[in-house]
Simulated scan of single mutants.
Amino acid sequence: MTKVISLISIVSLIFITSISCQSENKNDLQPEYTRFVGDISPDSILDASDFKVCNEEKHIFQYFNTGDGFKYKGEKPALVSKIKNNFKPIAGSDYQNGYIRIRFIINCKGESGRYSVLSSDFSYEPKKFDQVIVNQLLTLVEELDGWETISKNGTSLDYYMYLIFKIENGRIIEILP
């Protein structure tokens, strides 16, 4: 009987010790989630330090939320012309086919930042493109300077924008939206 009580005491002591040694807060174990799927969180390493949203993080809209549609000086033809005229296909890129999506934020001043890149084949399966093509497209999008602001009830908004490049044989075939 004494051995049983002793064994129970030892097991209880080990259990209590193991519980008390867990110093992590349960909240520390919870992953951080964004407000909506696809939100781009600030990244001090990747993002330009001078890019700031004008409103709170929870008040970044999608470009289509106000019904204003695509907002670029000269509209889509000007944007397409600027990118296609400056894009240089690379030699040996015949196997580069699919979509490259670049998503970013336009702040209330018409400045762009917080770029995110996602690529897929034509079946929407993840695909890794030649980094020279991706970097060139990203640079061209970062250099676009004709973004217009959108507003709601007289207040300029921050909003998400995206461009999808349809690539065939390493060449831009179409730019969406």
Rank of each mutant, 00 (worst) to 15 (best):
T34F: 08
I19T: 12
V134G: 05
N85A: 09
N107K: 05
Y63E: 07
C108S: 08
F36N: 13
C21Q: 15
T139E: 14
T17I: 13
K127D: 05
V37C: 07
P31M: 07
S93N: 10
S6R: 14
K73R: 11
L79I: 01
S49I: 09
I172R: 01
F87S: 04
Q22F: 13
V141M: 03
S44T: 10
A91H: 09
W147V: 00
E148Y: 01
I90A: 10
K73A: 11
D39I: 02
N86A: 12
V53F: 00
I133N: 05
L138A: 05
G92D: 09
I19F: 14
D28R: 06
P177N: 05
V11T: 14
N153T: 11
L46G: 02
N169H: 11
D145L: 04
K128I: 15
R114H: 03
C108V: 02
N107C: 06
P42E: 11
L176Q: 10
D145I: 03
F51P: 00
R35G: 04
F64L: 08
E24Q: 12
P31V: 08
K84P: 00
E111P: 03
L13S: 15
V11A: 15
C108G: 06
E174N: 12
P42D: 09
R35M: 10
S119F: 02
Y115P: 04
I5M: 14
F61D: 08
E111M: 08
I45H: 07
F87G: 05
K71G: 03
Q136A: 06
